[in-house]
Amino acid sequence: MRARLHPLTALTAAGSVAVITVAADSWLLSLAVACAAGVLSVRAGVAGRVLPAAAVILAPLCLSLLMLHGLFFPEGHTVLAQWGPARVTTEGLGFALDLASRTAACVMVFLLFSFTVNVPDLVSALEARRVPAQFGFVLASTLTLLPAIAARLDRIRQAQESRGLVLRGGLLSRLGAVRLQMVPLVLALVDDAGNRAQALDARGFGIGGPRTSYRDVADPPAQRRFRAVALLLAAVAVALRLAASWPAAGLS
């Protein structure tokens, strides 16, 4: 699936699904989309990365939604339980569920996209559409930055351990080690960036003018049509949503 899908098709699909889900404003549809993204991530073999990442983002978000709207929702009438000023209302829970499911759908869809997209393909596809090369470089660097930082931190830790830094499992010891590693990490990254800039200059990265791309990303006509339809559907969904809520907003 990953090999055949043009990165812009995947991006358009993810973006359109997210827009349509938000516009539809139905928690059932949102949950269905989130579940579908989960199933696709299993089939693409990236569930092991998508699901933990989604949990890290969504768990605190859902908790805070529940705290805010589940317990304190002034418009709520159907009170299920009450502790002082905090009231659990059906409306509040419904609102929290709505927001949480919509966010979950968007997060899952974009995580699925970012863990399945082939970054070089994406950069190359963007460059072919005259997006500035610098943007593509920053995008690719950002996606490779975390592994690079992790590798650098590991090297610094090994160097420090080899000179007598004893790391224990405790939180305080870990925090102490992080403090020792931060300054070297930042200095090393700054140094790397300086060297990288020289090398990029020497390889003609900054000379401007037209660029070409070595990588040829296949973009079959069917996928182009699919993208056009997806964008159209998203636009229609937004238009319908606006039409449905505008007069109401105007009256209130």
């Binding site: 070089p120 490779t144 690079a148 090398a199 000379i207 003018g209 037209p210 070595y214």
Partner: peptide, 20 residues
Amino acid sequence: LSTVRSTVAEELAFGLENRG
């Protein structure tokens, strides 16, 4: 190395891409 190219062939081509 540019560090943003995924194969040796593309790394070799990087300087040529920049020159169009």
